[in-house]
Structures are given as C-alpha cells and as structure tokens.
C-alpha cells in the first residue's frame, strides 16, 4: 500500500499543493469576511441571523472542498487513462483489486484530511466570534459536504478512468443524480440520516471498480 501511495503522491504533488492553497485561501477569506461582519454590525444580530436563517457563513469552504474533490478525481486518474498507463499498475505484482482500492483510497484519504482541516479551521474561526451553540453545529453540516465531496471525487475518478467515451457518457447519466442527493443547508439535521448518507457514500466509492475492471479485463 505504501508504494502505491508513494506513486500517487508523486503524481499529485502539484495538485495537493493547489488544493491546500485553495482551501487555505478560502478559510482565510472566510475569517476576514466574518470578522468584518462582526465588526460593522451588532454581533448578537449576526448570531440571530445565523440561527433564524440557517446562515452558513462558511459556504465558500463547501465550494473549495468540491473543487478539490473534482480536481483530485480528474488529476489522479487522467494520467492513468492517458496512454493507458493504468496497465502498468495492473501488472504490478499486487492483487489488482487491492491496487485499485489503494489508489482510490489515497484520494479519499487526501480528501478526508482536507475536510478535517477545513472543519477544524471553520470551527476555530467560528469559536473566535460565535458561541459554542453555533460552532458545535458546524461539523454536522460539513459532514454532509464531506459525503458529497466523496461522491464528486468518485464520480470524477470513474468518468476519467473509463476508457470509452461512449461508456463515460452512460456512466455520467447513471451516477450524476447522486451528486446533490445529500446536500444539506440547515443546522442540526438528523444524525441517523447522516449515517445513512455516509454509508451510501462508502458504497458509491466502490463504483471505481467498474471502469477499473473494464480497463483491466476489457469488459
């Protein structure tokens, strides 16, 4: 596994840097935006606005996360698709199901770490301006963003890896509907729903096997 991760890290060096920069920039921007808002208005009014209107003041982080997921998915698997480089990985003396799993797992781990950093950043930022009642409700909202980002990553990976444009289009039709299925715009939604959504996302992540095995075995 560590060797596959080594390869993926080399492959994604610049992309990793890019997504870190994008997310860091968005976090910093959000911090200053909130700070300005609090400075220029009565803070209790801002708090109330967030409470009454489910104000997701850190919504740009969601965009950054999804863009990162898309970039990771495409840039991780485009080199594999281009010139059928995936064949090299398939011939490594490693169980190919594991190889596919580890390759995808790398992207998922990167996304997870990114999300955790984003979440920590937003909670830390929010704790400077808001009471615990508000910032402890943030992780659950961002958890749904994480679920959606996993789906976007897998969608992008699967479509990128798929060698046939005909099948790419079909996969897009079949898998696209899930992308916004778990979008969440309110605080304190149901936890059981979040668990169901996460299980679905895990299930969805395994769909990378379809284009990978088509590549490998010529389905």
């Amino acid at each position: 596994m560590k060797h596959i991760f080594y390869k993926e890290k080399i492959k994604l060096n610049r992309i990793l840097l890019a997504v870190i920069i994008i997310n860091a920039a968005v976090l910093i921007y959000t911090f200053f935006r909130v700070r300005v808002g609090i400075m220029l208005n009565e803070p209790s009014g801002i708090w109330l606005d967030i409470i009454l209107r489910n104000g997701i003041f850190y919504s740009k982080v969601e965009t950054a996360l999804y863009v990162s997921a898309l970039l990771l998915g495409v840039m991780q698997f485009y080199p594999e698709f281009e010139r059928k480089r995936f064949r090299l990985s398939c011939h490594l003396p490693l169980n190919e199901y594991k190889m596919i799993f580890y390759t995808s797992l790398f992207g998922i781990i990167v996304l997870t770490v990114l999300w955790l950093i984003d979440m920590a950043g937003v909670v830390l930022l929010a704790s400077q301006f808001f009471p615990i009642d508000i910032y402890r409700a943030i992780p659950l909202v961002m958890f749904y963003w994480y679920i959606n980002s996993l789906i976007i990553y897998t969608f992008a990976s699967s479509l990128t890896l798929e060698a046939s444009w005909n099948v790419k289009l079909r996969l897009a039709l079949m898998m696209a509907g899930c992308i916004w299925a778990f979008k969440m715009e309110v605080y304190n939604s149901s936890l059981s729903y979040a668990v169901t959504a996460f299980l679905f996302a895990v299930f969805y992540c395994f769909s990378i096997y379809f284009p990978a095995l088509r590549f490998r075995k010529g389905l």
């Binding site: 390869k7 080399i10 492959k11 080199p79 010139r83 059928k84 480089r85 064949r87 090299l88 011939h91 490594l92 003396p93 490693l94």
Partner: peptide
C-alpha cells in the same frame, strides 16, 4: 506477475 516483464506499446512508464 513478478516473473513477467511487460513492455507496453510506446514504452509507457510513469512519466511523472
């Protein structure tokens, strides 16, 4: 697999 070496058309390698 480890006993077999494949050279793919175009000398595909991990260019990166």
């Amino acid at each position: 697999k480890s006993r077999i070496g494949l050279l793919h058309e175009g000398h595909i390698s991990y260019d990166f």
